[in-house]
Amino acid sequence: MRNNNMAEDCIYTAKDFKSDQEVRWCAGCGDHAVLNAVHKVMAEQGFPKENYALVSGIGCSSRFPYYMNTYAFHGIHGRAAAIASGLKVANPDLHVWVVTGDGDSLAIGGNHFIHVVRRNIDLNVILLNNQIYGLTKGQYSPTSLEGQITKTSPYGTIESPFHPGELVIGAQGKFFARSLDNNVKLTIEILHEAANHKGTSIVEVLQNCVIYNDKAYAAITDKETRADRQLFLKHGKPMIFGKDNDKGIVLDGLRLKVVKLGENGINEKDILVHDAHQPNPILHLMLVNMNYPEFPVALGVIRAVKATTYDVKLEDQIEKVKAGSKIHTMNDLLYSGNVWSV
């Protein structure tokens, strides 16, 4: 394999990754902040611009490729994961990123999404989840909340939403992280971890659609109360949160529970310590499913488990088959299989 990942030779700034295209997302759309984070992370990763390929499907989120000064691919609705899979296995030298939305990846692309996760191809997937179809102007998506009023559910949806984290873990996902569009610092931190992770990494960004689903996440992002409603997970650190850092998560039987430090004799030692590297997904599943008001919403890298990637396994297999093959020359090939003398 060529090694053109000469990190030390490349000194880039976020500006180098910006394209000259006018960004057409609405003013106030959460996508702008994520775009800036991606520019910054790609620059800091230090790889040459031409070693990046960014693939998207169709939707508001999928306008990303136009705004990147890298190789980019505006694909087919729902198929970004499949297109990126083809791209990565055909050219494993590239750093392949996928930008998709909740409609693109979990409705029409649900099938490709779970299979790319299952195969563990080395891709970085950013899933911008705004719980609505923005580009087609406001119909419900597979992550819209039950009862949500939209253009196609004027009396409230009657469907039960997908939780991306739950789906990723169900599909044997090895990396899942969650950020908020307005927390650029966290998004950057997570995207670096996703980029460094070998295998399919899914980063869900809870993203506000100012036009069709405004304030969808207001309950957890409101300045006054957010410290009590967000839990920042860090591998090896206790799950403590709250304005006064006085709340924590404990395991109570087979369920998670919010407790207050100092109450009922509870101290920091009783609080769960986050282990993102644990292959057993049970606790991670409980963490991704935590929701306000019963729980704070878990942010950060929730699951990051090492495993051999599909692309590495594929190359290994090709090498092994080559080494064990009896065919080394054209003549070997012509005289292989069923051969007759006439």
């Binding site: 409705a107 029409i108 179809y133 580009l135 087609t136 102007k137 119909q139 253009k151 196609t152």
Partner: peptide
Amino acid sequence: YPITPQSEVIE
């Protein structure tokens, strides 16, 4: 399934 320019049918 929503798609422009006909999403008004389902809406």
